[in-house]
């Protein structure tokens, strides 16, 4: 029926009703990325020394999530030209023809504005400004500039994904502290090995559209070395929350055990370079890196919730602690 209509109506008439469903517009927000943002921002929020009212906390998280979604939407608007060529992204709403670029741009801009205003009114303007900066950084600095101009795109651009715990903390306190910079550092160091593992497998896609991802520019072997080096730095860095006292024994042990497993994945990626097995170990690294970050923040969250509810918090042994040194 729709095809019959499309054949008989004029272009103007066709443009009157967008074919995009509510689900398509929701897909523009990159829901999976948004869920990670909600999760990490929640941890940042709960680390604050002052308790947050649950309703205000929920509203702030919602604003942060919508801000993240808006930046994802604007990223899809900007990248729609290359998304339609890459197999991984060809089914997104814009390249699939279900949402127009103009609709995505308007949707992203309106949501950006609303999310920043709502966060400002509900919490404070420092957090709102930080959210606005994060959207700007992801859309303008990463998507418009870095992504297509340097193989370090994902390294620098990764900062955008690392800001949410800081925004969450700032929404409660109106300031930042060292703990939030440590959480930022964990996500910042995690992003390159996580993303390059995927880029190793999808490098043909990136090469076809001229995006200078590291495997395309420096080659797969140099990328494997970089993945290993970043993982070697990340694993001990991720133990810092316990050493500094805002993570407990459970967090420290989780960071050490899952860190060892992540390192094993990175060593396998580094050593297995040929054939289907190379792709398989790279995808294993990609998948496990998601679980790794999830577990780190989940344990941190559980420990903090136990602490806030007066349940026993088993601290990292004092003799191994860096508390008071930083």
């Amino acid at each position: 029926m729709m095809n019959d209509q499309a054949q008989t109506s004029t272009p103007l008439q066709q443009a009157v009703i967008s074919p995009g469903t509510a689900r398509d517009f929701f897909a523009l927000l990159k829901p999976r990325v948004m869920s990670l943002v909600i999760f990490t921002a929640l941890v940042g929020m709960l680390l604050a020394p002052v308790p947050v009212h649950p309703v205000i906390g929920f509203a702030a998280l919602l604003a942060i999530a919508v801000g993240a979604g808006a930046s994802g939407c604007l990223n899809m608007w900007w990248d729609s030209d290359i998304d339609q060529i890459m197999t991984r992204t060809a089914r997104r709403p814009i390249p699939a023809g279900r949402v127009t670029r103009e609709e995505a741009l308007s949707f992203g801009m309106v949501l950006s504005f609303i999310s920043v205003m709502v966060l400002g009114v509900f919490t404070n303007w420092f957090a709102a400004g930080f959210l606005a900066f994060t959207i700007f950084f992801y859309v303008v600095v990463y998507s418009m500039y870095l992504k297509r101009s340097t193989p370090q795109n994902i390294v620098i651009g990764g900062a955008a994904g690392a800001f949410p715990p800081m925004i969450g903390y700032a929404a409660v306190t109106g300031e930042l502290n060292l703990d939030t910079f440590i959480l930022f550092g964990i996500i910042f160091l995690w992003t390159p090995p996580h993303f390059w593992a995927l880029a190793l497998v999808k490098s043909d896609d990136y090469a076809r559209v001229g995006v200078p991802m590291l495997p395309v520019v420096a080659g797969p072997d140099a990328t494997r070395l970089q993945i290993l080096l970043y993982t070697v730095i990340l694993v001990p860095f991720a133990v810092l929350p316990s050493l500094l006292g805002f993570g407990g024994l459970a967090y420290g042990l989780t960071a050490l055990i899952t860190g060892a497993l992540l390192l094993a994945c990175a060593v396998r990626v580094y050593s297995m370079r040929e054939g289907a097995l190379a792709n398989r170990v790279a995808m294993q690294m990609f998948g496990f890196s998601i679980l790794y970050l999830f577990l780190l923040f989940a344990v941190l969250l559980v420990e903090r919730l136990m602490q806030l509810n007066g349940l026993p918090f088993i601290a990292w042994p004092d003799m191994l602690s860096l508390k008071g040194m930083l």
């Binding site: 729709m2 209509q5 103007l12 074919p19 509510a22």
Partner: peptide, 29 residues
């Protein structure tokens, strides 16, 4: 006057309903 297919009207209706729910939720929030 533009003539719309049933499918187009259905999509518009579902989008408008979703928007109404979002706005109602925002008012409540």
């Amino acid at each position: 006057a533009p003539v719309f297919s049933e499918q187009e009207l259905k999509i518009r209706q579902s989008r408008a309903t979703a928007m109404a729910w979002v706005l109602a939720a925002l008012v409540l929030l």
